[in-house]
């Protein structure tokens, strides 16, 4: 009983400090990470990147072909 009282006292004393510590942290995209939505953004960017690279590779091949012909 006494132990529980002591623990709760410590908690009450420490609680404001804990809260304070959390307030002091810079806000980041934690929500997006916790519900997995950040992966949607990664997927979209990866798709755009794949498209651009595919285009560049095709262009490169075409130019190589032209160079061989001339």
């Amino acid at each position: 009983m006494r132990k529980a009282y002591l623990l709760s006292l410590i908690f009450i004393l420490l609680a404001p400090m804990l809260l304070h510590a959390q307030e002091n942290q810079a806000e980041m995209a934690d929500t997006m990470r916790s519900n997995g939505k950040i992966y949607v953004v990664v997927l979209v960017l990866a798709t755009i990147f794949a498209g651009i690279i595919a285009y560049l590779v095709r262009l490169d091949r075409k130019i190589t072909k032209l160079e061989k012909e001339s």
């Binding site: 942290q25 810079a26 806000e27 980041m28 995209a29 950040i38 953004v41 990664v42 960017l45 990866a46 990147f49 690279i53």
Partner: peptide, 25 residues
């Protein structure tokens, strides 16, 4: 180039960065 940039896009968005005010993500 393709490998490095793929890493840049995926790792750049997902790997940890320091928490800083104003700058955030």
């Amino acid at each position: 180039c393709i490998i490095l940039l793929a890493y840049t896009i995926i790792g750049g968005l997902l790997l940890p960065v320091p928490r800083q005010f104003i700058l955030n993500e």
